[in-house]
Nucleic acid binder design. Structure first.
Lengths: 229, 229
DNA sequence: ACAACGCTTCGATCATTGTCGAAGTGTTCA
DNA sequence: TGAACACTTCGACAATGATCGAAGCGTTGT
């Protein structure tokens, strides 16, 4: 017998609530949020949110830190974010080809962070541009930064050895659920996103994971990277 | 607002039923099964199973083929299997360190197929052995077959170019949910599993995804590969 | 054409679980 | 010490959805 099946079902049930799913997607950028903020995105009262958060934390999907009188919740590991991304990718497959694509928030579709790197049209466009210029080779399952790519990023001030001896992969693909194509992830993707925030090419919107592309950003992505966005 | 959250929740709800979870795990080896067989593993009546299967197919998790009077269901894409594997990996994290590990079916833990390659203790042992002999480099995020590894597999009669110009990656890691360590997947992993079946090193058990290691298999994995199992 | 079989649809029932009000805990600051 | 605040626990209620019996559909073989 498949003794894991009940466990898998229990586990999936954790995500199978709109409130909890909302909280999890809200946390997919890797940052911590207060219980109140998560109650807000879930659209429920603090009591209800607290109950949901307790369940998620009990199953090690979230970890909680205390900060004064408030509690901060974040995803327990990057693995959780990867799993959610995988689920979204499969969930985004349009089951009924006749129906119009599910209404995805346009801002979200345009540009967002996926844990710690760029996603959405922006993420894919930048990835495509780097690929076209020979900075990057990337398919759905693996990726590789070329010498030219490393030099290019180096010129921008990105030191890819930054977290010295990091066990994390330099360059890996991440399947973009809204574009249904891979974008750049891994250490390189994270470093690129960091740079974009530092240079004010993109700004986090107050709520959610979507980001705003500034005028500077538009210019930079277009001219420096050759991205078509 | 996160317009995807409700979709994600709906999607997760599909997996959040013990019956459906059982059906899905049963199908994770990539083969097709009849509705009756799936009703059996789910432990429900055919009517109920039919209802579950219809839901899964409607959301494009499964696809159905007719074969005479019976209907055969299989996973719609390998991506679905990968997603389920990712979920199991996260679900298998023991939330309560005090409790003993969740009782996983020992046969399942010992040796099973994961879509089309080897998993469980056997899968990890073979992977480790190949790694130790310099045939393979592999971590959680990426993998690479060395020249020695390609030669080694070639000597065994594995032609890794077999599906000519396959878009599928030669060598990639797959995180083993029972062992919590990566094992060999991709085209190389599939070819190796094929070989093991052909040479009768392993045999599918009548039900489920677990496989039996034959005496020949034990000898082959130990001597040929140097695996400690 | 008819019977047998596998599977699906329909309808009613019952359990699970998400929900919020009220009350409780713990932390910070005055 | 006491008040304010963030969050959690408890208890009861309502809705969603899984289940099976009964009946219907479609395919195969006689």
């Amino acid at each position: 017998m498949q003794t894991i099946a009940p466990e898998l079902a229990d586990f999936a049930a954790l995500i199978a609530d709109p409130g909890r799913a909302g909280m999890l997607t809200r946390l997919m950028d890797g940052r911590a949020q207060t219980a109140s903020e998560l109650a807000r995105v879930a659209g429920v009262t603090p009591q209800t949110a607290s109950w949901h958060l307790a369940r998620l934390a009990a199953r090690a999907l979230l970890k909680v830190e205390r900060s004064g009188p408030r509690r901060l919740y974040r995803l327990a590991t990057p693995l959780v974010a990867q799993m959610l991304e995988a689920m979204m990718t499969v969930a985004a497959v349009e089951p009924n080809p006749s129906r119009s694509p599910p209404r995805i928030d346009p801002q979200m579709r345009r540009a967002r962070t996926c844990y710690d790197h760029l996603a959405g049209e922006l993420g894919v466009a930048v990835t495509d541009a780097m690929r076209q210029r020979g900075h990057l080779r990337l398919d759905r399952e693996a990726g590789e930064l070329t010498a030219a790519g490393i030099a290019f990023l180096g010129d921008l001030g990105i030191d890819l050895r930054s977290p010295a001896r990091s066990r994390r992969l330099l360059c890996r693909p991440c399947l973009d659920w809204s574009e249904r194509r891979p974008h750049l992830a891994g250490r390189a993707g994270a470093a690129l996103a960091d740079l974009a925030f530092q240079r004010d090419w993109i700004r986090r919107r107050p709520q959610g994971r979507s980001v705003e592309i500034t005028a500077d950003g538009l210019a930079a992505f277009t001219t420096l990277f050759g991205a078509r966005i």
